[in-house]
């Protein structure tokens, strides 16, 4: 569904990712793991069009999307749930969701999708009229995911959905992500919670200093001693 071929991207003169090649097959959950500053977020921002790659190609369903404006990429069916959630704090929960469906013209279907995301996150229905900025961290993450779903994406990009959340809330979010995938949405997820994400991802890439250093099926990486030492903290298992 999504293919990155030799992607390099940079902030000014600093090259943040180098020659990244990865693929996200339709219907799968692919994880991108690595330490802070390894280039995970840069990769996600480049796919979403917020950053223009200096080299390489990005193909989405066989068509090149690198160089397209972010709003065009969103309209093709790629929704980014950005790092730090980026809720529209001065708009209501309902309005945040409306903005997620801004470009859709199928009014009836959008209404149905409101019900769908409210069923997925009942707390958002309760807080419909509240400003986004008044929600708790976990609720904001739910809103960010729900807002992305309102676009009916074919590919969902999740950048650190568990960041700063309590363990129980993280469990909830991960369960929901699996449910979204089971309902047919392809997922590319960046996570620092390596142990947990490898438990449900299909495939994973390891990013170090801006380069892919390892890849493989999630269960293989999970039992890899090098991964365990570097990212699983050596605790338990």
């Amino acid at each position: 569904m999504l293919v990155l071929e030799g992607i390099s991207a940079a902030y000014g003169p600093i090259r943040a990712v180098r020659d990244v090649t990865l693929r996200v097959p339709e219907g799968k959950i692919v994880a991108l793991i690595g330490a802070n500053g390894a280039g995970k977020t840069t990769t996600m921002r480049t796919i979403a069009g917020l950053l223009r790659p200096v080299a390489g190609r990005i193909l989405f369903r066989g068509e090149r999307i690198d160089g397209l404006k972010p709003y065009r990429i969103a309209r093709l069916g790629i929704s980014l749930v950005p790092e730090g959630r980026q809720i529209l704090a001065r708009m209501t929960v309902r309005e945040n969701l409306e903005m997620g469906a801004f470009f859709r013209r199928d009014r009836a279907e959008v209404e149905a999708d409101f019900e769908r995301v409210y069923a997925l996150f009942p707390v958002l229905k309760e807080r419909e009229r509240q400003l986004g900025g008044t929600l708790s961290g976990g609720q904001q993450q739910m809103l960010a995911i729900a807002r992305a779903l309102m676009a009916r994406p074919k590919l969902l990009l999740l950048d650190e959905p568990s960041m700063g959340l309590a363990p129980l809330v993280v469990q909830d979010i991960f369960r929901t992500i699996r449910a979204i995938n089971a309902a047919g949405t392809t997922i590319l997820i960046v996570e620092q919670n390596v142990r947990q994400v490898l438990a449900f991802a299909d495939y994973a890439y390891v990013l170090e200093h801006g380069e892919i250093v390892q890849e493989g099926p999630a269960e293989v990486l999970r039992s890899d001693p090098a991964i365990a030492a570097a990212y699983l903290g050596g605790r338990g298992s």
Binding site: A48, G49, L50, K69, P70, Y71, A74, R75, S79, L80, P82, Q86, L88, A89, R90, M91, E95, E98, M99, G100, F102, F103, R147, A151
Partner: peptide, 22 residues
Amino acid sequence: PFGKAIRATSESPETAAILGIP
């Protein structure tokens, strides 16, 4: 909807863009 898109863009042009707002 367009008025809301103006508010969204005012709050964060980047967030508005990834939501498909031109």
